[in-house]
């Protein structure tokens, strides 16, 4: 049998020993997972960021403009010095400025404008009364009312906010249901692996 399959099978079983109780076998498997994940990510980031984007262009191809990101990157480490830490604000300001500049228009369009336009539906369409549009309107307004805290939730406002909580509960319930489904799928996937590839009970 492939050595990789044996390691994967043994580690899967080691993780599941936690169901009995916290134990050294589980702890060893957990530490291995965390260590490997961090180690793998570190190697990938080292290669794809520092080597490919900075060291190779600067030292192998002589692209002197790369000195700018190198200096900006090094300035980040001035955080460790009380006297020089103010210098780290330069790359941080650049990152925040560029990040916000890129993200704000895209997010405003995708998360606000497009969502608003998708919420505006005609109540009457060609086929008659549009029930879906009514549910969207009631759900949207009542949920917004629940999050409107400048007025006390009493009377009509209280009733609307209460309806809003039901819509929220439906959303949370659906999300929780999907999450349970997802975790079950992960468990089922591991059982599939154990029975098919590791123990070879199933063809």
């Amino acid at each position: 049998m492939d050595i990789g399959l044996i390691i994967a099978g043994v580690l899967t079983l080691a993780i599941y020993t936690f169901l009995y109780k916290d134990n050294p076998i589980y702890k060893a498997a957990e530490s291995l997972l965390i260590g490997l994940s961090i180690g793998y990510a570190l190697v990938i980031y080292w290669q794809t960021t520092l080597v490919d984007r900075l060291l190779t262009p600067l030292f192998a191809r002589g692209e002197l403009l790369m000195i700018i990101p190198l200096v900006l990157g090094l300035l980040m480490f001035t955080r460790f010095s009380n006297r020089l830490s103010w210098l780290s604000r330069i790359p941080i300001a650049l990152m925040i400025g560029a990040g916000a500049g890129v993200a704000i228009p895209a997010m405003l369009y995708a998360r606000t404008l497009k969502q608003i336009s998708a919420s505006v539906m005609p109540l009457m369409d060609g086929g008659g009364f549009n029930v879906e549009a009514l549910v969207v309107i009631v759900g949207l307004l009542s949920t917004l009312a629940y999050f409107y805290f400048s007025r006390e939730h009493k009377g009509a406002m209280g009733i609307t906010a209460k309806i809003g909580t039901y819509f929220l509960m439906i959303f949370f319930g659906a999300t929780f249901g999907y999450t349970v489904m997802s975790r079950m799928s992960t468990f089922i996937g591991r059982i599939d692996f154990l029975l098919t590839d590791f123990l070879r009970i199933l063809a």
């Binding site: 995708a110 497009k114 969502q115 336009s117 998708a118 959303f171 659906a174 999300t175 999907y178 999450t179 489904m181 997802s182 975790r183 799928s185």
Partner: peptide, 15 residues
């Protein structure tokens, strides 16, 4: 993954 479906529903509904 199933856990993420509701996160993407608004994007699906808006096209």
């Amino acid at each position: 993954t199933a856990a993420m479906i509701t996160t993407y529903d608004p994007y699906l509904a808006s096209g």
